[in-house]
Amino acid sequence: MSEMPTGSGKGPEVSDVPAAISSSAVTEPSRELVLRVRNVGVSYWMRHSFIRRRRFWALKDVSFDLYRGDSLGVIGKNGVGKSTLLRLLAGVMSPDHGEIINYGVTVSLLSLNLGFVPYLSGRENIILSGMFQGIPKQELRERMNAIIRFAELEEFIDEPVATYSSGMTARLGFSIALNTQPDVLLVDEILGVGDADFQEKSKAIMKDRIRSQDTTIVFVSHNANLIRELCNRAVWIEDRVVQIEGDTGLVLDAYTRFLKTGEKIISASA
């Protein structure tokens, strides 16, 4: 508890917190809840030798709600478990304690170059990688030309991906991934990929997606400015525990104050 803010700062901050947390749940009852995360923790076993192994908690206590149309920014320094959180939400792993309640939505992580086979052509990789990401084959066939056009790979699409430059591969990967249209899209720092021109294009389209009211997005970043620009709500994770959840401005103010002074609002339970 020594990390609690002291003196004059204590009053307003303590009263701010419950307001921030409850704002999503109480003041906007009309919005549709899609995911509820409650006191979730995840641990990995780290193997040191034949018998010795140690439990490592990647996340200890994470709770928040996600509503349809939300753009939720997850902020925190590197290594606080943000990527683990996305894996949990994507259903790739299950929590060791706490629960994630899914109100009937599909959730998936925006992943680039998933399952690419370098010796096959771009066209074949569109089908295979797309199917791994859960897009039906028929749909991929129909969108094939649009994907190729967006990736600007018309000339090379029948060449093996192994012959592509890294920029070309990234363009192809991004164009395929854009077609995964889950109800909830999870984005891990991916905004601009590929060569300079394409970076602008992909950044713009990702920003559009994140801002849009139709798609629900969880966006992980350690860049406070990007989250301020793109998200309507935010969660700050520090020491594997959610420090504060609520309106972006409020959360980011607390986060930037923490970066400057090192003080947390809710101390991590030791």
């Binding site: 599909t106 399952g115 086979v117 295979l128 199917m131 859960g134 039906p136 084959k137 109800d183």
Partner: peptide, 17 residues
């Protein structure tokens, strides 16, 4: 919401194989 069935993964296993 897209529904994925066994057919999708069977097809994927054959194609990728």
């Amino acid at each position: 919401m897209r529904k994925l069935n066994r057919g999708h993964y069977l097809q994927l296993a054959l194609l990728r194989g």
